[in-house]
Simulated assay, not measured.
Amino acid sequence: MDESDFVGALVPGHPWPRIEVLRHGPFPCPGVEGPDGVFGDARTLLHVTPRFDPARPFVAIAFLHGWCATLTRRIGGHRYHVVESYRLIEQVDAAGLNAVVVAPQLARDADTAIAAMPGHPGGFAVPGAFARYLDEALTQIAQRRGDGVDAYRRAPLLLMSFSGGYRAAAKVLTVGGVADRLIGFIGLDTIYGETDAFAAWFAAHHRHAFIAAVYTGGREHAHASAGVTQALARSLGALGLAGVRVSDTLPRRLRAGVAAFRHVGDPSLHLDLVADGWPRFDRPVRRLLARVAGFGGV
């Protein structure tokens, strides 16, 4: 079903997840143009987990999708959908966290055959822009639930990125205006560049944040993220950050000071990595989020 102007709840009779238009999303963005509305969709996916309680510690999860993606089939797109293909909401709910979720529409259903830079960060490249976006998104959630907004404005933030979402992620980490709230970054085969930005963020904030990235490929796969991710791991190791041990395994708990970079297999895994994971590690969003300490993970 393609409802090009769809907003509202995705499941009749249930308030979450839902699609809303936000004023402060990454697109549309002055000076960034593409065919067929590629850079013109202002919608965001919003969600709260089952049994969510804002009186308890909770985390705001921001998810940045990859190329060729649309938030949901309800608003079109020919290839990948954050809700249905990535199974993002299903996995977040299964993780058992007390959490809210925001996922902006980045370039809409685009690859390099459609746009020169499908991973363009849009408005998120403007200093402080992501903070304004997050405040608007969380305020919408609070108001729809009938909650006060103060707890939402103080909530810790966890950033997740898949594939081509890395450019937007780098801007969020470095100029997003949310550094004091960020407790971690989870990368799913996503570090294809911007290593200086990721390294600078973690070096400055490792005392209260973690970085955990999984990647595919190897020396024979020049197009995969392996080489760049491994270079980032080496650069962090060379910094000698106090209390940080750069690891090639995923720890049982993702907490401040963790820097984990895990090779998970061949690039053939990439396209379905978010939904299917890798051998002996299915539903990776669920399993990684459940390792985040402090928010009721199972």
Rank of each mutant, 00 (worst) to 15 (best):
L159H: 06
A256G: 07
A95P: 03
D180H: 13
C29K: 02
H78K: 14
S161Q: 07
L236D: 02
A42E: 14
A142C: 02
R167K: 14
L236P: 00
T190G: 03
A275Y: 02
E90N: 09
E84L: 09
D135W: 05
D196Y: 02
P50V: 09
T139K: 10
V149C: 13
A204T: 09
Y133D: 02
D135N: 10
P17D: 13
H263P: 05
L10E: 05
H206R: 10
L97S: 01
A42K: 10
A129P: 00
V274F: 11
F261L: 03
A107G: 15
G177K: 09
F130R: 07
L232V: 09
R23D: 13
R286C: 11
D150I: 05
L269C: 11
V285F: 09
W16V: 01
A115S: 15
D276M: 10
Y86G: 04
A199R: 15
T195S: 07
A169Y: 02
W201L: 02
E136A: 09
L97I: 01
L271G: 15
G217T: 01
I191W: 01
F198A: 05
R73S: 09
S268I: 14
A137L: 04
F210E: 00
T229E: 04
P50C: 07
D109N: 15
V21I: 11
F63Q: 00
T229D: 04
A137C: 07
R262N: 03
H47K: 10
G294K: 08
A142S: 05
M160L: 15
D272A: 14
L159Y: 07
E136H: 08
A129F: 00
V214F: 07
T139Q: 12
D189W: 04
R43T: 05
R291S: 09
G37Q: 11
D248S: 12
A60M: 06
L288H: 06
F202P: 01
C29G: 04
A94D: 13
D147C: 08
A259K: 04
V100P: 04
L106P: 00
R291H: 12
A226D: 08
G119T: 09
G34P: 03
L88M: 10
A62D: 03
L138S: 03
G243D: 10
Y133E: 00
R87C: 12
L269K: 10
F27V: 10
V178A: 15
A290K: 01
